[in-house]
Design a protein around this nucleic acid. Structure first.
Lengths: 231, 231
DNA sequence: CGATTTTTTGATGAGTTTCAAATGATGTGG
DNA sequence: CCACATCATTTGAAACTCATCAAAAAATCG
């Protein structure tokens, strides 16, 4: 189950130097410290990105101030591709969780990148399609499953996405970036309080490790049980 | 707000006859009656489709039998493109709501269709991207908004997607295909009962028209209010 | 016209949010 | 390097939304 993501950087593998040059032409690099905002919901969508290092979170805020973390961006993934969809505003905000480095294209380079090589086109479409698939799975979870199960599923998904970068500590498997209970609530569609209660219970049961701004999975199989596999 | 979708059939506009021939080569046509199932969740994903006429619903079922309607497919849209994402099974089932006609490609034609012309590539990517965007909006709604608001937003979205095909009746605007309260529940993440109560209330308030398996929007502005625009 | 499908409505209770407050960690500046 | 402010988490109690259970009414179809 871990590591089942195809790195989008892999999209550039097997390309001729010529093609890579085409793709990378016009790019620049941006460095971010934790908490830095790369773009804000409503900003003009004049750039799109690929994350080289680090982790980011993409959030959406409702009119009445409710927040949802739409996704965690992992190294190798495209993000902020609103320009590619002919949107002129970013639908969400993007914030660095840790020190990060991203590749930046101006929006008018989209056509060229997409058309650089058939294999690139194909893997970009696949990447977006996978995100769509994932969004539908989450949608189903959010509407049909109860709080605890949603949290369990979220943690499993984050672990799976982290793949190799998940840290093997003494207490179990640790996600390679910090997350608060509030973050987890915003990702799983719960309140901070509900998540705290749920996770505190799992800590005493030994399913999770204890830690501030940390997620440590102590008993993977137990967590899968809680997520609703089998039982 | 209505009609803001770009028809995917439009994707084939402005193409040379040569290119159109490439795209359509190897296709067949399938006709469906209401209730007919085109493919089932778990079926081998060996074909992908474009809806020419009618309306379909795509559903996903959880292990424990809970149902979610993932989307309504409108004329001109691609659907069942799991093969394009290198999936070998369809993640959901597809059922005709009314008499419908769809264009069918075998899965191995995907690369050729995608690469037929730059403008086709671009608009396919845009179409999938828009779906992703929409899924994120729904995700946010489902998790942060309460039942009535979710229903209001759903109805507005369906009206918007229907665009020109929405019927102008005496009682208001009617969606061009039948939907049960159960369908609406499965789309908005509610139970049949909750939806019935909500909609019955709106009917007495004059926001909606009365009807079995029908959705009639009598007072669009009122519905927008209920959905959370303004106030 | 009886059978089936769809919708309505009431009563009850479980699960979550909300409100309120305390406790525990972390960092910082004097 | 400690005192203090800040941030993160925990916990309790009350309120509320919505799902569940149960049943009847209304519309449609063969």
């Amino acid at each position: 189950m871990p590591n089942d993501q195809t790195s989008d950087l892999g999209a550039f593998e097997g390309l001729s130097p010529e093609e890579v040059r085409t793709i990378l032409s016009g790019t620049s690099t941006v460095r971010l410290a934790p908490g830095d905002l790369l773009f804000l919901q409503g900003d003009p969508a004049d750039r799109f990105f690929l994350l080289k290092q680090g982790w980011l979170k993409v959030t959406q805020v409702t009119a009445d101030g409710q927040k949802l973390i739409v996704r965690i961006v992992h190294p190798g993934e495209f993000f902020g591709f609103a320009p590619a969809l002919q949107r002129d505003e970013y639908p969400g905000s993007c914030e660095a969780i840790v020190d990060s480095v991203a590749l930046v294209w101006p929006r008018n380079r989209w056509k060229a990148v997409l058309g650089a090589a058939p294999s690139v086109t194909l893997s970009i479409v696949q990447a977006i399609g996978r995100k769509l698939d994932e969004a539908h799975v989450r949608l189903r979870e959010m509407t049909t499953e109860e709080a605890a199960r949603r949290v369990a599923n979220l943690l499993l998904r984050l672990w799976s996405e982290a793949g190799e970068s998940a840290l093997d500590t003494d207490g179990g498997i640790e996600l390679p970036y910090p997350l608060t209970r509030q973050d987890i609530a915003d990702m799983s569609g719960n309140t901070l309080h509900t998540v705290s209660r749920i996770m505190a219970a799992w800590e005493t049961q030994g399913v999770l490790g204890r830690g501030r701004r940390k997620v440590v999975i102590a008993d993977l199989d137990a967590l899968k049980q809680l997520a609703g596999f089998d039982d």
